[in-house]
């Protein structure tokens, strides 16, 4: 059926032609914050701005946003005693609303004992195994993602404030190196999409700046909350690379570096994305 092929080709040409043009026009409507001097972007824009108004509406309504189911679940777990020490999160930290305020916005943080940066998931599990003497939760488990979301939610609206100096600087450089390295059969780096082509329309979707301020994020595609390192894995899988392991040093360095790329953006956890 040659006619159909011609039609398809014409459609592809039309889409390609369109894709290049409206990017600038779309940019105009996207609100961001001015980046600090020496930053890669002029304007730092949250992934929220790249989503449809319907998806944004789901995030904006605290009742409709399904991410809050996780926040409520974890609020109960926060008070629950587990492990042989007879402690709950609350035994040491008290009310999460006070003690966890701003904690999630500053992760990953340097750990003096381990001599490496630690992210929120790792910190929660360290608390469980060291202080509560309870089983650490598996990565991607609902329990760990719920608690991560709950703790990060306590920083809702606060600016992302990762520290990248001092002992963190070699990790920052490592993250930067990963960000600009092309991986996989498609030979793409993070920067190929999220730095050079953000705002453009690709695969029926707008490429965002790849900001992390909304993680863990409720993905409509997965119908559940997705932690950051799972998203990193997904990106690497999509470019047909062999992903690094979640919570590996590579992803931790990348988390730190990408956090810096979104420095100052308000924490949106639990955000809603497609």
């Amino acid at each position: 059926m040659p006619y159909r092929h011609v039609g398809l080709l014409a459609a592809v040409v039309a889409i390609t032609a369109l894709a290049g043009v409206p990017a600038a026009a779309q940019d105009a409507g996207r609100k961001g914050i001015p980046a600090p001097p020496g930053h890669v972007f002029k304007t730092i824009i949250s992934g929220y701005e790249f989503r449809t108004k319907e998806t944004r509406a789901v995030q904006d309504d605290d009742l409709e946003n399904p991410g809050f189911l996780a926040v409520e679940r974890a609020a109960d777990v926060w008070k629950k005693v587990e492990g042989s020490e007879g402690k709950s999160c609350m035994s040491c930290h008290g009310e999460a609303e006070k003690s966890m305020k701003g904690v999630g916005a500053a992760m990953p943080k340097w750990d003096d004992k381990l001599k490496k940066p630690v992210n929120l998931e790792q910190r929660i599990n360290m608390c469980r195994s060291e202080h509560m003497k309870a089983e650490p939760w598996a990565f991607k488990s609902q329990a760990l993602t719920d608690m991560t979301t709950f703790v990060r939610y306590q920083s809702h609206g606060m600016p992302v404030a990762v520290k990248t100096d001092g002992p963190m600087s070699p990790w920052f450089e490592r993250g930067k190196q990963i960000y600009y390295t092309r991986y996989g059969q498609l030979d793409l780096a993070c920067a190929s999409c999220h730095e050079r082509n953000n705002g453009k329309f690709m695969r029926a979707d707008f490429l965002s700046q790849g900001q992390t301020n909304g993680f863990p994020t409720y993905r409509l595609r997965d119908q559940r909350l997705v932690p950051l390192h799972e998203r990193f894995e997904g990106c690497m899988f999509d470019v047909r690379a062999e992903p690094f392991k979640p919570l590996s040093d590579e992803f931790l360095a990348l988390e730190l570096y990408v956090g810096w790329r979104g420095i100052g953006l308000p924490v949106e956890t639990p955000s809603v994305r497609n």
């Binding site: 309504d61 009742l63 409709e64 399904p66 809050f68 189911l69 679940r73 119908q223």
Partner: peptide, 9 residues
């Protein structure tokens, strides 16, 4: 009235 329930569906 708005309702949201947690379920795997």
């Amino acid at each position: 009235i708005k309702t949201l329930v947690s379920h795997v569906m």
